[in-house]
């Protein structure tokens, strides 16, 4: 088991090298000169040339790449010139917000999609099944940016159920003492109920908005794998033993049907990281997503490359965890 995890971690390295190479080349090939952006459109050519030398942009591209990789190994992800901080500084102040948003979305998606999928399968072709089908279709089709704007329009401007979509907490309220960096968790841990309530209200809309796509797909997946399992012989065996129907479904069927859904949840993580970029922009959520949007608009290479690499690392690790969980859920899967 330990050997398997180690081997999987080693296999990730070539993948990461590929990602580093591709993001590096793409960001260099795309039009837009950072030196011009830093100095301003009207800057004299000699100033721009000087900045290019400072940034190392006058060097051949392969030397730039070697420099970049060398720095990566020293933990230096470069400096985001549009904020003036190192990428690491920017990330550490913004990452908790993104983690909170992503975790909340995954949580909401699981909380709603799994029961909906189970009910839709157990009550197949009933009105509940049809309703869940329609909502899944809507959830899978509606783009995040449209849904986000509709949420803000209805629940904030029109009905005022939720606070203004500006950040993680209202201006007049102090953020909770930083423990994990997640406001919800920190405010609970420090017993700060005012901050908890306010940050929860700020979190709900963007988290639901980000979770809809995942929710729809997971619900459908859960339904279909549940339907398949319910038709299996061992479900009939469980019923023939006299088991209560709720136990047949929740124990015998779910423990088998959850395995494919888990795969999907792992894969959806990549989608959520991507979706966070859009959601954070719409809700002015001070996370990495909004920061990356700004970096793209400012042709700021370093944060973009760092973000891509980070997404790849997170995605790979989440999927490694998923694979390890398989072994726990399904005794037929064993890793050596």
């Amino acid at each position: 088991m330990f050997g398997y995890i180690l081997r999987r971690l080693l296999y990730m390295i070539p993948g990461f090298i590929g990602i580093i190479l591709i993001t590096f080349v793409l960001s260099r090939v795309l039009p837009g000169d950072p030196a011009v952006m830093i100095a301003g459109e009207q800057a004299p050519p000699d100033v721009i040339a000087k900045i290019r030398v400072e940034l190392g942009l006058d060097q051949p591209i392969y030397i730039q790449f070697v420099d970049y990789v060398k720095k990566l190994f020293q933990g230096d992800f470069g400096t985001a010139w549009h904020t003036g901080h190192t990428v690491l500084q920017d990330f550490s102040s913004r990452l908790p917000a993104t983690v909170e948003l992503t975790l909340a979305s995954i949580f909401i998606a699981i909380l709603i999609a799994i029961p909906v999928g189970i009910i839709a399968a157990v009550k197949k072709e009933s009105i509940l099944d049809h309703i869940s089908r329609v909502f899944s279709l809507i959830g899978a089709c509606v783009p995040i940016f449209w849904l986000g704007l509709m949420f803000i329009f209805l629940f904030y401007s029109k009905w005022g159920f939720f606070p203004a979509p500006m950040g993680r907490i209202s201006d007049g309220i102090n953020p909770p003492t930083a423990i994990t960096g997640l406001y919800i968790l920190d405010s609970l841990l420090s017993g700060d109920m005012i901050a908890f309530k306010d940050s929860l209200m700020h979190l709900i809309l963007p988290a639901i908005c980000l979770s809809t796509g995942t929710m729809a797909i997971v619900a459908r997946m859960m339904r279909s794998s549940m339907l398949e399992v319910i038709g299996q012989d061992y479900i009939r065996t469980a019923r023939a033993k006299g088991m209560r129907e709720s136990k047949v479904i929740m124990k015998h069927a779910l423990s088998n049907a959850f395995i494919p859904t888990l795969t999907l949840l792992g894969l959806q993580f990549g989608f959520l990281i991507g979706g966070a970029v859009i959601t954070e922009t719409i809700f002015s959520w001070p996370g990495v997503g909004g920061y990356i949007t700004d970096s793209i608009l400012a042709t700021d290479y370093a944060p973009i490359q760092a973000f891509t690499l980070m997404s790849a690392i997170v995605f790979s690790i989440v999927n490694l965890i998923v694979d390890v969980l398989y072994g726990a859920l399904d005794p037929r899967i064993r890793y050596e």
Binding site: Q232, D233, R236, L329
Partner: peptide, 17 residues
């Protein structure tokens, strides 16, 4: 009344002891 079935390969739940 209890029952045994034709397919022993699929009649037991694979994820429980």
């Amino acid at each position: 009344i209890s029952m045994i079935f034709q397919e022993p390969m699929t009649s037991l739940n694979p994820v429980f002891k």
